[in-house]
Simulated scan of single mutants.
Amino acid sequence: MKLGLQLGYWGRGPIDEAPALIAAAEQAGFDAVFTAESWGSDAFTPLAWWGSATSRVRLGTAVAQIAARPPTSVAMSALTVDHLSGGRHILGLGVSGPQVVEGWYGQPFAKPLARTREYVQVIRDVLAREAPVTNAGPHYPLPYPSDAPGATGLGKSLKPITHPVRPDLPIWLGAEGPKNIALTGEIADGWLAIYYTPRLAPQYEEWLAEGLSRPGARRTREEFEVAATVQVVVTDDVRATLNEYKPATALYVGGMGAKEVNFHAEVYRRMGYGDAVDEIGALFREGRKDEAVAAVPDEMVRETMIVGTADEVRAEIKRWEAAGVSMLMVTARTVDLVRELGTLV
């Protein structure tokens, strides 16, 4: 089992303690450090800035949003970070949701799986640097079609000036649904899992196996990485810890997506919490956020986190590893906690 430090995206400003946290993580034996983006700070700039002070940990985006950049642009960012870090970059990508994609980026959300497949292929073609990059589309045609609106017909196929450090730079995908997880197994090198629960590991493995068995799949299961975002808390007061994390659960289930499409809510439905999801979502949308938090069952929080005494936490980490998880992506906002987590693996 490996550890990844998830710094996430910023709130109203930068994470002041990030340099100290990253230094502690590298010293404590963490394998990787990750940044994220929503509709504020971007994922690549902080990663490069803070990562410049590191020498060993891998540096990943978890996740960079596909709608934010054309695939050739994100390929440029990835090969740049990989050069600057000496080949330590992990490119983590995700589709986000329709509210962000259409509301913030002004891009269509339809056919997210097809878009992801095409997006990743263009990135791999850029990094391979075998020929000028072309793509028939329909989502990311290269060159831009001469008969498309606004086209000059002068578009030229190009290959990157800069030679990538690693043509096979690892691409991990954030995925929550069965079809997306299967696609991840087929075209990616790792899965960024959110709200993972070992209880459903056989189901996850079945979905991954479908993709890993497809013709042209990149990895075997032994080579494929599963990085699960999880809160790890050493405490004697489990109930207080669960109450502390219920607001975040209520926010993602009730507020991070539309009523019609909320991928986080669907994850919990597949876990068997459909009635709770309906109640939390209804309360949240009515502005009754305190009641939404109170409606979150203890077990709904507990089974997607690792909490208990040090011995209990170590036993749980072994259970997650046995379930197929190769990395725990943890959130820590103090140096002492980073160091403590480093002793548990």
Rank of each mutant, 00 (worst) to 15 (best):
Thr45Leu: 04
Arg270Val: 01
Ala248Lys: 01
Arg12Ile: 10
Pro71Thr: 12
Gly94Gln: 03
Ile22Asp: 01
Ala265Phe: 14
Tyr144Ala: 00
Gly11Arg: 15
Ile181Tyr: 12
Thr220Cys: 14
Ala151Arg: 03
Pro98Met: 00
Tyr204Arg: 11
Glu222Lys: 15
Leu328Val: 05
Pro108Ala: 08
Gly40Ala: 12
Gly60Phe: 09
Glu286Lys: 14
Glu279Tyr: 01
Ser96Arg: 02
Tyr144Phe: 02
Arg166Glu: 02
Asp189Lys: 00
Lys2Ile: 01
Ala64Gly: 05
Arg239Tyr: 12
Leu127Val: 09
Ala250Ile: 12
Ser326Cys: 07
Ala294Pro: 09
Trp50Asp: 08
Leu328Ser: 04
Gly11His: 09
Val325Ala: 05
Glu316Ala: 11
Glu299Trp: 10
Gln65Met: 11
Tyr105Val: 11
Val325Gly: 11
Glu26Asp: 04
Asp125Thr: 03
Ala201Ile: 00
Gly4Tyr: 10
Pro70Gly: 07
Gly254Arg: 07
Glu210Gln: 15
Gly281Met: 07
Ala62Thr: 03
Ile90Cys: 02
Arg199Glu: 13
Val100Asp: 00
Gly106Lys: 00
Glu279His: 12
Gly190Ile: 08
Ala24Leu: 04
Pro46Phe: 07
Gly87Trp: 13
Leu79Pro: 10
Gly29His: 03
Pro132Glu: 01
Gln99Phe: 08
Ile194Pro: 02
Glu130Asp: 10
Pro297Gln: 05
Phe284Lys: 02
Thr61Ser: 01
Ala282Leu: 10
